[in-house]
Lab assay of single mutants.
Amino acid sequence: EPLWIRPDAPSRCTWQLGRPASESPHHHTAPAKSPKILPDILKKIGDTPMVRINKIGKKFGLKCELLAKCEFFNAGGSVKDRISLRMIEDAERDGTLKPGDTIIEPTSGNTGIGLALAAAVRGYRCIIVMPEKMSSEKVDVLRALGAEIVRTPTNARFDSPESHVGVAWRLKNEIPNSHILDQYRNASNPLAHYDTTADEILQQCDGKLDMLVASVGTGGTITGIARKLKEKCPGCRIIGVDPEGSILAEPEELNQTEQTTYEVEGIGYDFIPTVLDRTVVDKWFKSNDEEAFTFARMLIAQEGLLCGGSAGSTVAVAVKAAQELQEGQRCVVILPDSVRNYMTKFLSDRWMLQKGFLKEEDLTEKKPWWWHLRVQELGLSAPLTVLPTITCGHTIEILREKGFDQAPVVDEAGVILGMVTLGNMLSSLLAGKVQPSDQVGKVIYKQFKQIRLTDTLGRLSHILEMDHFALVVHEQIQYHSTGKSSQRQMVFGVVTAIDLLNFVAAQERDQK
């Protein structure tokens, strides 16, 4: 057995438009009618409502009807409940999964919650491996369901041993009777949507819809739904939504950006999952974080739909894509998950301010006199920076000697690579993860907040409520011999709460 199987392995699926269902090699399930009293909570997966979006479509000038398939009504709160249950049931049916076995899954959280929910009911041990950027709410729900959680670096490539995929496979090879159901490759993922989600949409719309818009992560949702719609409703256009920084969209030119990270969760990847059939997507749109969270908040405030950030991405694209539809036509959007997962993220004004998705003037509360002053007023001194090749031991000596707790790590040209902190280095040394002679590049981390000289002290204040420091950066445009230009970030300084307090105190003292 291989040590790991690539999540982007070539698909062996034989589905073709027009091929009889009787030739399918898979076990198919028909939607079942729910009894009045459910035998367990797993029976509350599927049969989610279709809700008309009344205000947002009109606000953006849509002539067509805009409908939302509300997947956050599933038992675990997301569309991923469907595939989690289906993968477990299919693994039980073919004898792969037996009582007492362990389920391991690399996930952005929602599939993990679905699997942990099913594992709690069915009696399996469950280990979820997820990147650090995923919300604390997801972690809390997983723990409450009895799952064990392993976190991995957000910026690790999918084929790196440190990625959530790599760590999951390492655990599988170490733990007896453990299984990775593997949402990236498992046919049960798109089949769950082909058999149930798509049929529900067709039934709820009486077979009449002209466009379907869905955000894409593993691709199982859009693949399964689109294949069924292509068979039953061939005139329906399928629109895929991919965040900026991901590479799922086609044509490839759409993916060209210097951005590699994004805040919206559960969609987009740096590889093409095996289950994603991009041939059934008629057109791709890219979405960005700001519009995703703005539209998610709009869905909550104006439509009462308590959905997550990827739902915002989907609707932001839908109001663009559906401009081509006329009166009497219908566009369906998939709202994948609930706001429950993001209470401390985009639902929080403070978080939105820190990330730059909300401006101070958007909030009406009274601010102190210094709130709208610029960061450049602080008069920061030149920063202490270190090269990635310097040793951890030497870096600790320098920081202690100069009285700093942290320093930016830059390359020879001064471009920011990340940050090192005294606390992080000492804990890594004590844990045996690094040696004093190791290069400081081994303990770089990139989960820090950046701020510009033109940003306000109010925004800085919000950042420092949650973080010990902020890195002050400025952009530099560099022209190359080819005539092309590129933008790079340079370090201007490091600012802490002490710097802000000293500035405010000094100004008030001078005024007296």
Rank of each mutant, 00 (worst) to 15 (best):
D411G: 09
L399V: 08
E397A: 15
I416V: 15
Y342V: 02
Q511T: 14
E475L: 14
Q259S: 03
D499M: 00
I451K: 10
E324I: 15
K449S: 12
I498N: 09
V339D: 02
R400A: 09
I247F: 05
L305P: 00
V333T: 14
S381K: 12
Q326Y: 12
L426G: 13
V443N: 10
R459Y: 10
I463Q: 14
Y262F: 08
T364F: 13
T279R: 14
G458V: 12
G240T: 00
E361P: 06
G414C: 13
E360F: 12
V333F: 12
H372D: 14
D499V: 01
F346V: 03
K286V: 01
H462E: 14
G240A: 13
I498G: 15
G423V: 04
F293L: 03
P243W: 00
S246Y: 00
C307P: 06
I239W: 04
S461D: 06
V317C: 10
L276Y: 07
E508K: 13
A318N: 01
C331M: 07
E475V: 14
Q511H: 13
L358S: 08
T454L: 08
T454A: 04
E291K: 14
A505T: 13
T364E: 11
V415L: 15
C331H: 00
S481R: 14
S428I: 14
G356T: 06
G240L: 04
A322T: 05
E263P: 03
K355N: 11
V434M: 14
A497Q: 09
V332Y: 00
L358F: 11
D277H: 03
F285N: 08
T385R: 12
H462C: 12
V410D: 10
V409C: 12
N424M: 11
D270V: 02
A301W: 09
S428T: 14
L457N: 04
P243A: 04
Q447Y: 11
E401W: 06
G414T: 14
Q447D: 15
M298T: 13
A431F: 02
K433F: 15
W371R: 09
M343W: 00
V280G: 14
K355F: 13
T294N: 05
K484S: 14
Q323L: 15
A292S: 05
L429I: 15
L305A: 00
Q259G: 10
F285D: 09
D499A: 02
G356Y: 04
N288V: 07
G441D: 14
S486L: 14
L363G: 12
L363I: 12
A249C: 02
M466V: 15
L453R: 15
E401L: 03
S287M: 10
K446T: 13
L254D: 06
L347Q: 02
R509K: 14
L299W: 03
R452G: 13
E291Q: 14
E397M: 11
L353G: 06
D289I: 00
K355V: 02
S246P: 01
G245W: 04
R400P: 15
K283D: 08
V280F: 06
R278F: 02
E401R: 03
G458C: 13
E250S: 05
G266K: 01
E397D: 14
Q354V: 06
K359H: 13
R488C: 06
G356H: 07
N502L: 11
A322W: 00
T482C: 11
L426N: 08
V494P: 07
S313F: 03
E263L: 08
F404Y: 08
L430A: 14
T364Q: 11
G308H: 00
V504L: 07
G423F: 13
S246L: 01
G328F: 10
I477A: 15
T391I: 09
Y269Q: 02
G432R: 12
P436Y: 10
K366E: 13
D438G: 15
Y445Q: 06
I463P: 11
E303C: 02
V319S: 09
R330S: 12
S310D: 05
S481N: 13
V440P: 11
M298E: 11
A497E: 05
A413T: 15
A249Q: 05
D242H: 01
E265H: 05
R488L: 13
L453N: 12
F346Y: 03
F404S: 09
V495P: 09
D499T: 06
E263C: 07
L399P: 03
K512W: 04
Q354R: 10
V420L: 15
G245Y: 00
R452H: 13
G403Y: 09
T314C: 06
I300F: 05
V332T: 03
L384D: 12
L500F: 15
K449E: 15
V491C: 14
V317H: 08
F503P: 14
L254N: 06
S310T: 07
K286C: 00
I272C: 08
Q376R: 14
L501V: 13
Q450K: 14
F357M: 01
Q376E: 13
M298A: 11
V495D: 09
H468T: 11
L422P: 05
I498S: 12
P273N: 03
L430I: 14
T279D: 08
D282V: 11
L501G: 05
T364M: 13
L422S: 11
S338G: 10
C331R: 04
V386I: 15
V264W: 00
P408H: 02
I398R: 08
K359W: 08
F503M: 13
N255D: 03
A249L: 05
A301R: 11
W370R: 03
T260L: 04
L305H: 00
S310W: 00
L358P: 07
V410T: 14
E250N: 08
L422Q: 07
A318L: 02
K320M: 12
K286Y: 02
E263Y: 12
L464N: 06
L429H: 13
T344P: 04
E465L: 14
Q487A: 13
Q259E: 13
R400I: 10
F448R: 07
I247S: 08
M419G: 11
D411V: 11
C331I: 07
S313P: 13
C331A: 13
M466P: 12
R330Y: 10
F503K: 03
Q329M: 14
A431Y: 09
D455A: 15
L248A: 04
L373Y: 15
L347C: 03
I247D: 09
D242S: 02
D349T: 05
R297K: 07
K283L: 09
D270M: 00
I267Y: 07
A431G: 13
S437W: 11
A311E: 04
E401C: 15
G308T: 00
E465Q: 14
V281I: 04
Q256G: 13
E252K: 15
W370A: 03
D282W: 07
A382W: 10
M419I: 14
C307E: 06
Q406W: 02
M490L: 13
G423C: 04
V275C: 07
A311I: 06
G493Y: 14
G240N: 02
H474E: 13
M298C: 11
V281F: 07
G379H: 12
Y479E: 12
A296I: 01
A318C: 11
R400M: 08
V434I: 14
K449A: 13
L387S: 13
L378R: 02
D438L: 14
K320N: 15
K367S: 10
L430M: 10
P388G: 14
G441S: 11
D289V: 00
A505H: 03
F404M: 14
L276F: 07
E290F: 06
R509L: 15
D282G: 12
C307F: 04
M466E: 10
A311K: 06
L471W: 13
Q354E: 12
Q329L: 09
L380V: 15
P383K: 08
L378I: 03
M490I: 13
A292P: 08
P383G: 06
D438S: 14
W371K: 10
L248G: 00
I267Q: 02
A506K: 10
L358D: 08
D362A: 13
I390K: 06
K442M: 15
Q259Y: 04
T421E: 08
W351I: 00
V494A: 13
K286D: 01
L417H: 15
D510N: 13
A321C: 13
I247A: 09
P388L: 14
E327R: 15
L460F: 14
I272P: 04
W351Q: 00
Y445V: 12
Q354W: 14
R488K: 14
T395D: 09
I444R: 14
Q507G: 13
L387I: 15
Q447N: 15
H480F: 13
I300R: 00
V440I: 15
F404W: 15
A470T: 15
Q487D: 14
H468M: 13
I247E: 08
L417I: 14
T482V: 11
I238E: 03
Q329C: 15
K449P: 05
S246Q: 02
F492M: 14
L353D: 04
V241R: 00
W351K: 01
V420S: 15
G356C: 04
V410H: 14
M466K: 15
C307A: 08
M425F: 12
L378V: 06
L276H: 01
F492P: 14
V472G: 12
I451G: 08
V319Y: 09
A382Q: 14
T260H: 10
A316R: 14
L453F: 15
G418N: 08
P251D: 02
F285C: 07
V410C: 15
